[in-house]
Design a protein around this nucleic acid. Structure first.
Lengths: 137, 137
DNA sequence: TCTTGAACCTCAAGTTACTTGAGGGTCTAT
DNA sequence: ATAGACCCTCAAGTAACTTGAGGTTCAAGA
């Protein structure tokens, strides 16, 4: 059983050490076993758990959502359907964000196009674009 | 000259009062004039400025970016081309984020589809989806 | 004129999800 | 045995606000 120290666990999971300690602190990871000298010692189970957590975080789940997802995994009685529902709710949020960003992208691209068209010659005190941005909608 | 109090300014700009005070505190808005009783008094110029700031924030510019954009507007010498460049840099960031989100959306949708396919019958202790999420990539 | 209630004031602390820093032990290899 | 990498704890910093406590001012109705 090769046990890992915190840095190795971090490397294996795409995390870093302070974040792992932070997760332990907020109870997302169980208090780690300690070696003789007091350093944290981890096993494969911890790699799994932390990988799960990181993946969920990458998916944009909040810490609290991850917490319930972790609880779901823990509890053999409750099914993955509960997780599915959490995920579905999140999917809707992601799609909404996606739409917002698309609108945003167009707006900025439009702004730049206008700049390029009307300020092409260089600095001009008659450029009204920044003024436009300040106009109430 | 109908002067506005903070709540009216907030309403006109889609902000709220504490946020306006916060912006004043960090120097994004100039210290507001005060009425007899010490309450803040605003004019049309402030509506413009705050509208500009809010719009930039909605565009996802950071406070610091907005700060430089505001400085650009202030400075008649520098042109809108400078603003264009700030915007262009931001556009690239938005596009990157957009791509990330698209990938994310597919991942979650895939997760849900898998759930629907393999857990359709209801809770099952043999569901491996949550296990899968914990597998190292 | 008085009084209520909404809107305002300041200052401090809370939020999210971490990161960074200070000051000091432990482990491993030479 | 000693250097250097890695680890420890605890506190504070980050972004961009929001929330709360405790108190003042304003506008309108009785």
């Amino acid at each position: 059983m090769p046990h890992l120290r915190i840095g190795a666990l971090a490397a294996r999971t795409g995390t870093n050490a302070p974040t792992i300690r932070y997760y332990e602190g907020i109870g997302l990871l169980r208090p780690a076993d300690r070696q003789a000298g007091g350093q944290r010692a981890y096993g494969e189970q911890d790699v799994k758990r932390l990988t799960f957590i990181r993946r969920c975080r990458e998916f944009g789940f909040s810490i609290e959502q991850v917490r319930s997802l972790v609880a779901l995994v823990q509890d053999r009685e409750r099914s993955c359907m509960d997780a599915r529902n959490v995920a579905h709710e999140h999917l809707l949020a992601v799609r909404a964000k996606l739409n917002e960003l698309k609108v945003l992208e167009r707006s900025i691209a439009g702004f730049i196009a206008t700049c390029d068209a009307s300020c092409a010659g260089g600095p001009g005190p008659d450029c009204t674009i920044l003024e436009d941005l300040a106009r109430p909608s």
